[in-house]
């Protein structure tokens, strides 16, 4: 689920140095092959391996289960889209919470040495704890408020990538840019607003994207707590009922939504940060 470690990765598209190809993702034969055909082939191979190992499963079974979930819903009559909507709601809540808490903290750690000295060890001690390990505490803390307990897990997952990327971005502020601002008599607030934030924006955006991604991955863990709705819940409950086709349908939906959201982030990143020429999908 989400025990994976989070690295302060910054520039995801850095493999794709030649960003000249811009928006035309599928225009050239090379891109068509590399960006569409090969990925799909690899996914199919993975599928075949999983199907072989799990035995006795075909695309048709899954397709049937998928359609059934879409139209008729699960045993309680809740459709796949309703589950997805619920999950998106929870993740968005956790993510926004992480965004408004981790960004200011990351800026403070990146900009002020005293804050860095005091808080960096704290962050480094808490960061390796996987979000899933917080589940018992989360239940204790929030008792009857299930949504809060779930949002808390997602918040933990999204918090650290945003924090670390923001800190990295702020650290990279070019000192001469700050000198320029000070030569015009800018105070600290203006420097933060007009220099530090915009120059850290690319790393922060990457942090948001990675944070959302990890929050989304923590979904299954968060929804294991219960709640009766959500894609993660659907994975757990259908597995317990032995409806593997529905389990896989829910997994596919999790993957698809995660993929779309990641692309949405990249798209916004590219639009908003035209000055940062390395950013590329």
């Amino acid at each position: 689920m989400c025990e994976m470690t989070q690295s302060p990765s910054t520039s995801p598209g850095s493999y794709d140095e030649h960003s000249a190809e811009e928006d035309g993702i599928l225009h050239s034969p090379r891109n068509f092959l590399f960006k569409l055909v090969f990925p799909v082939l690899i996914l199919l191979v993975i599928w075949e391996v999983v199907a072989y190992v799990a035995r006795g499963f075909s695309l048709i079974d899954v397709g049937q289960a998928f359609l059934e979930l879409m139209i008729e819903g699960d045993t309680d009559g809740v459709t796949l889209m309703e589950h997805a909507g619920r999950s998106i709601y929870r993740v968005t809540l956790g993510f926004l919470l992480a965004l408004v808490t981790a960004s200011p903290l990351g800026i403070a750690i990146g900009r002020y040495r005293a804050v860095n000295d005091v808080l960096s060890p704290v962050v480094e001690a808490l960061r390796p704890i996987p979000p899933i390990a917080w589940i018992p505490l989360s239940i204790l803390m929030f008792r009857t408020n299930l949504v809060a307990a779930q949002v808390f897990i997602i918040w933990i997952g999204a918090f650290f990538p945003i924090l670390l990327n923001t800190t990295t971005g702020v650290n990279r502020t070019n000192p001469v840019h700050i000198d320029v601002a000070r030569s015009f008599g800018a105070d600290e607030q203006v420097i933060l607003h007009k220099i530090v934030l915009p120059s850290a924006a690319p790393e922060m955006f990457a942090g948001f994207r990675i944070g959302f991604g990890i929050g989304w991955m923590c979904l299954v863990a968060a929804e294991m707590i219960g709640g009766g709705l959500g894609l993660g819940y659907l994975v757990i409950i259908t597995q317990q009922l032995g409806r593997t086709g529905q389990t896989i349908s829910a997994m596919l939906m999790i993957g698809l939504i995660g993929f779309l959201i990641s692309y949405l982030f990249l798209y916004v990143e590219k639009r908003a940060l035209r000055w940062r020429i390395e950013v590329s999908i």
């Binding site: 320029v180 915009p198 940060l273 000055w275």
Partner: peptide, 12 residues
């Protein structure tokens, strides 16, 4: 002040 190194803000 015109600084020694390039100092334009790349995002502006």
């Amino acid at each position: 002040y015109i600084f020694q190194q390039e100092s334009l803000f790349p995002w502006r």
